[in-house]
Design a protein around this nucleic acid. Structure first.
Lengths: 137, 137
DNA sequence: TTGAGTGCAAAGGATTTGCAGGTTC
DNA sequence: GAACCTGCAAATCCTTTGCACTCAA
């Protein structure tokens, strides 16, 4: 984990290690609040969570997701393929579940196809947001 | 335009007419700020824009889009099929373009498939966000 | 008339910034 | 030692809410 941080050109500190550990343990997107709760308020200030995630995002260690209510969630980017993992966000429990592999693969394929078509049409710096949400009953 | 408002069970007022006109003229998603600017500050208060868009959304007259930076945008829903129209939002010009029909159709199909699968897995009140972004060069 | 809609001011919540002090390299 | 990080407090930004007034139906 320290390696990830160094490779990003950032200094290894207690809050940063804890935050990445929390993300890894969660196995899916977490909100700033959830991250703060996960590492414990003693570990660092809420502001530090914001700043760390900002730094991590800029260096590509984490990426953002958007919840249906506008909440921002962060997830670990371990490998290039992680940029293409998709999730279902439960409105009731705030839990996150990975989509089944079949769906994920199909989405990935389609998204790449659409983005290629956009590049062919002259767009650069192409990106996307794909989120599913629902209520667990 | 007044018909749209009445059909939604809402009262026809000057701000509401102006807001829908602005959306129609834009031909794509607009932010609250942009809407307020488009109708002119004399037409109504910023708060009214929030409230009107809230009311319109609840009655299905408009729908939300999400920009890559988390901004919320609203777009007109003229027909049922508009719920499943997808766009490319340009990061530079703030312009919006509809995706080509072929891509749109494929996305719609895939999204419905995934949502069905989610319902089969026990999710209710299922929804999604699908947005593409890019820079026009 | 009468409930829905609006303006204005103020409250709320989330995120950012300034600055002084502490820590990593 | 110098640059980078962090904590705390305060500033901002976006959105919602309360209340009295106005207007559409």
């Amino acid at each position: 984990m320290p390696g990830l941080i160094r490779k990003a050109g950032l200094r290894v500190t207690k809050p940063r290690l804890a935050l990445l550990d929390a993300l890894a343990a969660a196995g899916g997107p977490l909100s700033i609040e959830q991250l703060h709760g996960a590492v414990g308020a003693e570990t660092c200030d809420l502001v530090t969570v914001y700043r760390c995630m900002g730094a991590f995002e800029r260096s590509g260690v984490v990426a953002r997701s958007y919840f249906h209510d506008g909440t921002t969630l962060f997830r670990l980017v371990r490998e290039e393929t992680d940029r293409f993992s998709y999730h279902v966000l439960s409105k009731t429990t705030n839990q996150v579940e990975a989509l089944d592999e079949h769906s994920s693969a199909k989405i990935k394929q389609l998204v790449q196809q659409v983005e290629k078509s956009l590049r062919d049409q002259g767009f650069t710096d192409v990106g996307h947001i794909v989120e599913f949400f629902g209520t667990r009953t």
